[in-house]
Amino acid sequence: MRKTIFGALLASASFVSTAFAADLTIGVSIPAADHGWTSGVVFHANRIAEEVMGSYDDVEVIVKTSPDPASQANALQDLEIQGIDALVILPTDPDALVNAIMEVKSKGTFVALVDRAPSNNDDSVRDLYVAGNNYGLGEAAGEYIAENNPDAKVVVIRGMPIPIDQERQDGFDAGIEGSNVEVLDRQFGNWNRDDAFRVMQDYLTKFDDIDVVWCQDDDMAVGVLQAIEQSQRDDIQYVIGGAGSKDMIKMVMDGDPMMPVDVLYPPAMVGTAIEMTVAGLMGQLPVAGVYTIDATLVTPENAEEYYFPDSPF
């Protein structure tokens, strides 16, 4: 009992202090770093939070990570108790959290949703939606291949059978449309480097002549490159991944012939959402709406802009 009273006192004390210390408090709720991409999200959320607090004395940014939807719902409540004016959220599972998000929004809090959207993604759920472009990620890779190797024979390694993977495939097919690019095979590599290694080894057994590998993910590219190196085959001209991990961006930057370009699906988009939220609330700018980030093609010329050597991803 004493503990709960003490806890309540402590909670209200911290509530009072944050509420008075800052004119504007922004809560950032993101998934815990459980794989490469989310570790990038955590890195960039903290990086931009510090940058924002460094440039505004009266803005407080609180970053909270949660491993699953249930704990993220609790984290939202904790943030609410601290009196946030705006919430930036990348939900672990958007449909599971949609009610919790609407609850926050119903209190007049500005809500910016990042990347993962619930089925009813309209202005009753959020004010701003910052989205990555899965279709564009496939399209950019497809267009690059169609432009540079219009007669290429391509093997594709997919992620998992879920909607965002299908969007990437549809984009890729649109990108190569009209060219002579031939897709030899598509198999799932589960966005896992070991599975990608296995699939690539089998592709090399199955096909005598492969020009390009599109594996749409930088983690899988690690396994693909190893399998190619082991086979000592020289028919494969290059591999295209996606997302923008520091290792693959570095290869592009160094002009590695096996990795001429990469396609962005940047975890830094959480930072975009934080900055736009600050701009909206501090600068009285209109930011509500949907902002889709381009799947930018990373080339040796622009790679440096997207290289974060300190990030875990």
Binding site: A32, A33, G36, S39, G40, D219, S311, P312
Partner: peptide, 9 residues
Amino acid sequence: TTWLSQGGA
């Protein structure tokens, strides 16, 4: 493992 790698590699 996740902690050692900070979620990355």
